[in-house]
């Protein structure tokens, strides 16, 4: 499964979220080999770049057109991110 984190410039918040996804993958005891994470800016992101798109709530409207989206209320909140990833994977029957 590939997560693509999207933010305005692909320089700041998307990288912070990417760091936290790596940590969530460890904490959820997922196989890191099956979880791919990358980040991008809004302008370059396209639907083929990920299976799940993750962004902050301010970009939700722009990103949701790309595919399945996880929207974060607080970009730095690791618990929120972990819970939402867990929920998504459960819905997909992957957890």
């Amino acid at each position: 499964m590939k997560f693509l984190v999207v933010c305005g410039h692909g320089l700041g918040s998307s990288f912070m979220i990417e760091m936290n996804i790596d940590q969530a993958v460890k904490e959820l005891d997922l196989d890191p080999g099956t979880m791919d994470v990358d980040h991008s800016d809004l302008g370059s992101a396209s639907s083929d770049m990920g299976d799940v798109f993750i962004c902050g709530r301010d970009l939700a409207d722009n990103v949701s057109g790309l595919g399945e989206t996880i929207v974060l209320d607080n970009i730095l909140d690791k618990e929120e991110l972990k819970n939402k990833i867990e929920q998504h994977l459960q819905e997909k029957g992957m957890l």
């Binding site: 933010c7 305005g8 410039h9 320089l11 700041g12 918040s13 912070m16 809004l42 902050g56 301010d58 970009l59 607080n74 970009i75 730095l76 909140d77």
Partner: peptide, 21 residues
Amino acid sequence: SVKRLGPYIVISPQIAIAHSR
């Protein structure tokens, strides 16, 4: 950038990280 993309630089309550390309 903020005018165009919204207040996305407010990454967490009380914290903004202003930046651009």
